[in-house]
Amino acid sequence: MSSIITNSKVEIDAAGLPYRELNQQIRSAVSIGAKHITLRNVAGQRYIGTNLYEAADRKALDELEIEILGTPGNDLGMFLDGPSITVYGNVMDGTGNTMNAGRIVVHGRAGDITGFSARGGEIFIRDDAGYRTGIHMKEFGSMRPIVVIGGTTQDFLGEYMAGGLIIILGLTLKPGELHYFSHVGTGMHGGAILVRGGLADYQLGNGVGVVNLEEKDRDSLLKYVELYGTYFGVDVAQVNVDQFVKLAPLSKRPYKQLYAY
């Protein structure tokens, strides 16, 4: 096993390891008490963080930190339930897919369907993200997923969104440039998207509208923009709560009128 263990810190060299083996090594490390795992030379291995379920108890998983150097493959942190993952590099598709709890921080950009169907947890992407970001996110009870994107995303942002919060900072846009996405929030029936940066009417999907920020949105912005600055060491002084617009569903039942009774 190509890992080095020193007082609950573990390093694994992922070079050449198939994902199944890499994930098995991560599980073994967690099961012997690792609290901080560094994965080096990660190159496309999928499902990192997906199954740590039986390796440790709830509390240990909540405290677990995984640091990834390189480019993890698709479905990073799929079904993630507690741990924090930090990636120094870009991520591919399906980051945080159907995630329940935990945190994923990406020092780079993300591929498609980031945060797809997430029910809880936090995802921070420093730069841009691909298509269908935050699609069908939901929330339940105290579980509320948060996706923060530093730049912009491609189309269908927040499609079918049923809950949670997406914050788009627009930091990668040039002055006066519009966001890249259109059809934002098509079929959206819950949650909110807070957008900073150029946005035209035609970019909004069916069933979503611009509404005023509420106090709780301002609180969320203050909190998550500051976290974004801290995680990525970026100066966020230029980001002001008043620069955001809030996109919210016009109806909780977008398809109510669709059927003949």
Partner: peptide, 10 residues
Amino acid sequence: RMIPAGTDAI
């Protein structure tokens, strides 16, 4: 389903 009561499950 782990969604709020009363909302459509799409």
